Simulated assay, not measured.
Amino acid sequence: MTAPHAQGPSPHALFGATGKTDCAGTSIASGGRAAASALLTTVGAMTFPPPAVPLFVYGSLRPDMALWGAISEHVIEAHPATLRGRLFWDAGGEWPVLVLDDAGGVVHGEVLSLRPGDAVNRVIVDEELRYGYDARWLPVATDAGEREALVLVWNRATGLGPEIPHGDFVRATAERS
């Protein structure tokens, strides 16, 4: 696995939640309103939260997948994108997990531009991070070039099922039907 990409503000700060990050850029749920308001000010020349947050989705948050309905009304735009890594089924065979691996294949998904706010925060934090994902800023490839996006990455070597060799959860789900 590659080292975490330490750029960008805290994922919690972007989505309006309380929290902060460690030096590696991974999220640490803590703090309170005072900690959150300290993060939701100005960093350099940018004010947070921004009007849109780029989120790379590769599984259940993709259009027409299980959790799409929870965020679709907050999506400003979506564009096809890829990321270097490996995609696996979780140990239960229901959800995809992304493992960073520069030598691995390509993971297919979309970059969503999301309006920050409580509803998006609940999906990202409550439905994803509590299940063992870390939110990290990583470069993703789009037709318009490379850009930084928030990516939910599997954070441990356990809980992995079979690999999805082509790196496309939508295709893998269709192949199971």
Rank of each mutant, 00 (worst) to 15 (best):
Thr21Glu: 05
His5Cys: 11
Ala45Ile: 00
Ala36Lys: 08
Ala174Phe: 11
Glu163Asn: 01
Ser27Glu: 09
Leu67Ile: 01
Ala3Trp: 07
Pro165Val: 10
Glu127Ile: 02
Leu112Asn: 10
Cys23Trp: 06
Gly109Phe: 12
Gly32Asp: 15
Pro4His: 07
Ile124Phe: 14
Ser37Trp: 12
Ser60Met: 02
Tyr58Cys: 04
Pro4Thr: 02
Gly85Glu: 00
Asp22Glu: 07
Ser72Thr: 14
Gly44Phe: 07
Ala91Gln: 14
Gly132His: 07
Thr42Asn: 10
Leu98Pro: 13
Ile76Val: 15
Pro80Ala: 04
Asn155Cys: 13
Ala141Val: 12
Arg136Glu: 03
Ala38Pro: 05
Trp137Ser: 03
Arg171Phe: 00
Val99Tyr: 10
Gly117Gln: 09
Gly117Thr: 05
Met46Phe: 10
Ser72Pro: 03
Ile76Phe: 00
Val153His: 00
Asp22Trp: 00
His79Ser: 13
Asp126Phe: 06
Thr26Pro: 00
Trp95Arg: 14
Asp64Cys: 02
Leu55Trp: 08
Ala45Leu: 11
Gly31Lys: 08
Arg171His: 11
Ala149Lys: 08
Ser37Val: 14
Phe88Ile: 05
Gly92Asn: 08
Leu14Lys: 07
Leu129Thr: 13
Gly159Asp: 06
Ile164Pro: 06
Gly104Tyr: 07
Gln7His: 09
His74Gln: 14
Glu128Lys: 13
Ala81Ile: 06
Leu39Thr: 06
Leu138Tyr: 05
Pro4Gln: 03
Val111Gln: 03
Val75Pro: 07
Glu94Ala: 13
Pro80Ser: 00
Gly161Val: 14
Leu39His: 08
Arg130Leu: 15
Ala70Arg: 10
Phe56Lys: 06
Met46Asp: 11
Leu55Ala: 05
Phe48Ser: 04
Leu67Thr: 08
Glu146His: 04
Thr42Gly: 04
Tyr58Gln: 09
Leu150His: 01
Phe169Arg: 04
Val57Cys: 05
Ala81Thr: 12
Ala66Arg: 15
Leu98Gly: 07
Ala70Lys: 13
Ala144Lys: 10
Tyr58Met: 12
Leu87Met: 12
Asp22Arg: 07
Asp143Gln: 10
Ala52His: 13
Ala45Phe: 03
Ser27Met: 02
Leu83Phe: 00
His79Cys: 12
Leu87Pro: 14
Leu40Pro: 04
His79Tyr: 09
Asp126Met: 14
Phe169Met: 01
Trp68Ser: 15
His108Thr: 15
Val125Ala: 11
Gly109Tyr: 00
Asp101Gly: 10
Thr18Leu: 06
Met65Leu: 14
Ser113Cys: 11
Leu138Asp: 01
Asp102Met: 02
Asp126Cys: 11
Arg84Gln: 10
Ala81Met: 05
Val120Thr: 13
Arg130Thr: 15
Thr21Met: 02
Arg130Ile: 15
Ala174Glu: 14
Gly59Cys: 05
Ser10Gly: 10
Arg156Thr: 15
Ala35Glu: 15
Thr26Lys: 10
Gly85Val: 08
Thr2Tyr: 00
His5Ile: 09
Asp102Ser: 09
Val140Glu: 06
Pro51Lys: 09
Pro51Trp: 01
Gly16Tyr: 10
Leu152Ile: 04
Pro51Glu: 12
Gly16Gln: 03
Gly117Pro: 08
Glu94Met: 12
Pro80Tyr: 04
